[in-house]
Design a protein around this nucleic acid. Structure first.
Lengths: 125, 125
DNA sequence: TCTTGACTTGGAGTTCACTCCAGATGATAA
DNA sequence: TTATCATCTGGAGTGAACTCCAAGTCAAGA
């Protein structure tokens, strides 16, 4: 696949695709003789992973390390697992924060809805 | 309360507290004669709200607008509600993204755990 | 009285994650 | 053949959200 196709398929700009490769967030992509990128199915798998992880806010640094470990072969399986477990822990924490914020938003919206009916908005400790 | 106390209570740096006030993310804080901040219970409520919303990634711009609307009185109740509803919608979307990432992390960690037992890690389409 | 320490301001600096750009090259269509 | 278009590289620029700093004020303790 060309970079244009991959960019459309995953809705990631070409600049970002090149950037991810440059910083090692995904392994080097195959090239044709003339130097033009030719994404394999495996490359696409990495792109998809990157998009998924980044959309949840997993930091770029962690993903670079994960990618580097992967390229060092099976001896790093334990380290890779640890890395993912740690990111999962942080993600869970963030999800809990978000749930708290969601609860607060629901509470406030509910109060505003009642205020729209009664015309009264009491102070909110 | 002094800024030092508020900073400790909510675990937010003094610089950030001043910054939030400067950009209008919270209403102006009361001052003593000499210009030193004296946070009331209401100020603390705003700080708590700011911390909660920011921890979930609600953008600063939206919070500034919410704060501004609040200071314009009851005529903005509808607009404030709409703003919160919109931020809730975006937050829900983010939480769904995170859940997908969480699923993927669980799947991958599970595969690594099996690989640690069997010594085999098949490639992951 | 002198020094220490908390507080003030406005503005500059930092970090993260892109995003854009200039200049070059190579392929395609008229 | 000429013009247009996709792609390449390295490096500069951007926006969001802080974070730090210099220079000044003020109150309290030795």
């Amino acid at each position: 696949m060309t970079i244009t196709e991959v960019s459309k398929k995953y809705d990631i700009s070409q600049d970002t695709l090149r950037y991810y490769e440059r910083i090692g967030l995904i392994p080097a992509v195959n090239r044709r003789k003339n130097g033009i990128r030719d994404y394999t199915e495996e490359s696409c798998g990495w792109i998809e992973l990157a998009k998924c992880m980044r959309s949840a806010g997993i930091p770029i640094e962690a993903l670079i390390e994960y990618c580097a470990l992967t390229q060092q072969g099976d001896s790093t399986i334990g380290a890779r697992k640890e890395l993912l477990v740690e990111e999962r822990r942080k993600l869970l924490e963030k999800m809990e924060d978000m749930q708290k914020t969601m609860d607060k938003l629901n509470y406030k919206i509910d109060r505003y809805e009642k205020a729209e009916v009664t015309g009264v908005l009491s102070w909110d400790k």
